[in-house]
Design a protein around this nucleic acid. Structure first.
Lengths: 112, 112
DNA sequence: GTCTCTCCCATCGTTTATCGACTGGTAATA
DNA sequence: TATTACCAGTCGATAAACGATGGGAGAGAC
């Protein structure tokens, strides 16, 4: 019964934040976002397409990002996602909330 | 459509770790675990009973903890949970994995 | 010319965790 | 007697992440 556990690809609840951060420097397409997160994290954060694209849909629906079709550097059809002003605000909020949680968890952990 | 978001009570995926840590110093009953997490985190980590008890069931099923009925300091019927050796091992593993994730996320975040 | 590789998009169905609301009970205290 | 604090859970809804799957188009090898 779940005796051996897989190492998760990412911490649940942090994907939206990670995507928003990835887009903070400029527009990226989905594939590029995944690459960015992977390389920036030294291959620890491996976000699969089946997590990434639904997440991007969420962000679109909430108005945090907008999307437009274009061509990638490799001359391929790609959909570029860009942070909206509301998205920047959301990024700040999520980052604060994340920090709050991490600090709280560290307090509990460091007792040991 | 989800324009205003509630601040979550805890980071998903971290509850098991938090419980294991809470029990690392000695047996506690469920209510006591929740109290411990709340006070240690300066009221940030508010784990509700409907998250706590299912989590304890998971830990029991996996053999990370064992449980026995007893009486609380307040002279009430209480179920005391205790870490097993497998639970200590699991605690180490989860803590490592958590640290790995946090470090990776920080790397992505600090670029901004 | 076609094969394969990398790049790029996405959905569907399953699993799993969290959580709001609820039920149920006992000791102490006002 | 009533209320409050302590202590145990369950049930159903919601939502996020993920494995599997299914495209398609450019580039380079053969």
């Amino acid at each position: 019964m779940n005796v051996s556990r897989e190492a998760p690809d990412l911490l649940p609840g942090t994907l939206d934040l990670l995507i928003l951060v990835a887009l903070a420097h400029g527009s990226k397409h989905g594939y590029g976002i995944a690459e960015h997160l992977k390389s920036m994290s030294a291959d620890v954060l491996q976000v699969g397409e089946s997590s990434l694209y639904p997440a991007l849909q969420r962000l679109l629906l909430n108005g945090w990002v907008k999307a437009e079709w274009g061509a990638s550097e490799n001359n391929r059809r790609a959909r570029y996602y860009t942070l909206t002003p509301a998205g920047r605000k959301q990024l700040r909020a999520e980052r604060e909330e994340f920090d709050r949680m991490i600090i709280a968890i560290q307090k509990v952990l460091q007792v040991t």
